[in-house]
Design a protein around this nucleic acid. Structure first.
Lengths: 194, 194
DNA sequence: AACAATGTTGACCATTCGGTCAAGTGACTC
DNA sequence: GAGTCACTTGACCGAATGGTCAACATTGTT
C-alpha cells in the first residue's frame, strides 16, 4: 500500500480527501459512493484506489488530518499566552472559528462517533484535545485561579458546551457574529471559576 | 400504509423497534440490514414491511418514540417542584439516568444528526427539550435567581454539557456512580448563576 | 361453518456499490 | 529511444441489500 508520491500525487490525494469530506458531510458517509467522489473530480475510479486502499481508510485519514488542522489552529491562537484562563478562552474561540469555517467536518465527526472502527480514531483525537485543556485547567488550579476540581471532567464539559453551541447556532441557525462565542466563553469560565 | 393493529400487532411493532434500535446502535444504521433485524427476531422479512413502509420510516419512528420516552422521564422527575433551579437540576439528572439506561439511543441520535432526512426529526425533538429548559431558566431570571441572559443560549450550553459528560463517562469509560452527574449539575448551575 | 381481516413466509428481483485489473499514458532518466 | 515508474482509465465482478409478492396461517366475526 505504501507508495511514493510525487507532488502531483500529493495534490491529487488532497483533492480526493477534500472532495470526499464535502460529499460525506452533505449526504452522509454510506450514501456517498466512491463513484460519486471520483465523478465530481472528473477522474476514473482507479485513481481512488491508487491513493487509498479502501473507502474506510479514506475516512480515517480525513478524520486524522482535520483534527490535526484544528489543533494547530488552537495552538497558533493560544501562542505563548501566559494566563491559563485566557488560554482556555482563546482555545474556545479558536475552535468555534475553525468549526464555522469547516462546518463539514462537524457532521463528519458526529458520524464517525457512531461506528466503532471510526470512533476509535475519534477517541484518540479527543484524548489529545482534552489533554490540552486539562493542562490549562491544572495550571489555573495551581495558581489558585479556579477551584480545585477534577480537571478532566470540567475539560469535557467545556468541550460539550463548545460543540453544542457551535452546532445549534452556526449550523442549524446561522448566527455569524461573536455573540455565541462570547456566551460560550462566559458560561464556561463561570462554570470553571464558580 | 395505515393499518389497523391488534394487540399482537402492536407488540410485534415494538419488538421490531427495540431490536432495530439495538442493532443500529451496535453496528450503525446503514451496516444493519433489514434482514439482520428480522433474523434476530426469527421472523420472515415480510413481517418488517407489514409494520413499516421502509427502513427509513422505522428509524424516524424510533427517534420519535425514544425522545418521547426521555421527555416523560424528565417530567416525572421534575414533578411539581416549585424551585426553577432545582427543576433544572432534576432535569439534568433525569436525562443522564435515562441515557445511561438507554445508551443505544445516544448513538442513534448522533447518527441521525448526520443525515438530513433524520436530522429534521431530531431538530424538532431538540426544540422541545430546549423549550422545556428555557422555561425554567426564564422563571429563575424572573425570580432574580440567576443573571439576566439569553435563556436559549444557556439552555443549549446545559444540553451540551449533559450530552458530552454522558458520552465521555457513561459510554467511553464506565463510571457508574453519581460523581459525573454531580459534576454536570454543579458546572451548569455555576455557569448559569455565575 | 363461512368469510374477512390481520399477520407471516421466504424466494425473488432490480439495483447499487466497493473493489479489481489489464491496458494505457506521459514524464523523467540513462 | 528504451525503459521505468508514477499515475489513469473504465469495463467488469461478486456480494450485498431494500423492497415485492403470491401463497399460506391465524384470529376474529357473523
Amino acid at each position: 500500500m505504501r507508495r511514493k508520491l510525487t507532488q502531483r500525487g500529493r495534490d491529487r490525494r488532497q483533492q480526493l480527501m477534500d472532495c470526499a469530506a464535502e460529499l460525506f458531510a452533505e449526504r452522509g458517509y454510506h450514501p456517498t459512493a466512491v463513484a460519486d467522489i471520483v465523478d465530481r473530480l472528473g477522474v476514473g475510479k482507479g485513481v481512488f484506489y491508487w491513493y487509498f486502499s479502501s473507502k474506510e481508510e479514506l475516512l480515517v485519514e480525513i478524520l486524522r488530518s482535520s483534527h490535526h488542522d484544528l489543533r494547530r489552529r488552537q495552538q497558533v491562537a493560544i501562542g505563548d499566552e501566559p494566563d491559563p484562563i485566557v488560554r482556555i478562552e482563546l482555545g474556545i474561540r479558536a475552535s468555534m472559528t475553525w468549526f464555522r469555517e469547516h462546518r463539514h467536518f462537524f457532521n463528519l465527526f458526529q458520524f464517525a462517533a457512531t461506528e466503532e472502527r471510526f470512533a476509535a480514531v475519534l477517541r484518540s483525537n479527543e484524548q489529545v484535545a482534552i489533554a490540552d485543556t486539562v493542562r490549562h485547567i491544572k495550571d489555573a488550579i495551581v495558581e489558585g485561579r479556579i477551584a480545585d476540581q477534577d480537571p478532566e471532567v470540567v475539560a469535557q464539559a467545556v468541550v460539550g458546551v463548545v460543540e453544542q453551541l457551535t452546532r445549534a447556532y452556526f449550523f442549524e441557525r446561522d448566527e455569524p457574529d461573536e455573540r455565541v462565542a462570547n456566551a460560550a466563553v462566559s458560561f464556561c469560565l463561570r462554570g470553571l471559576t464558580g
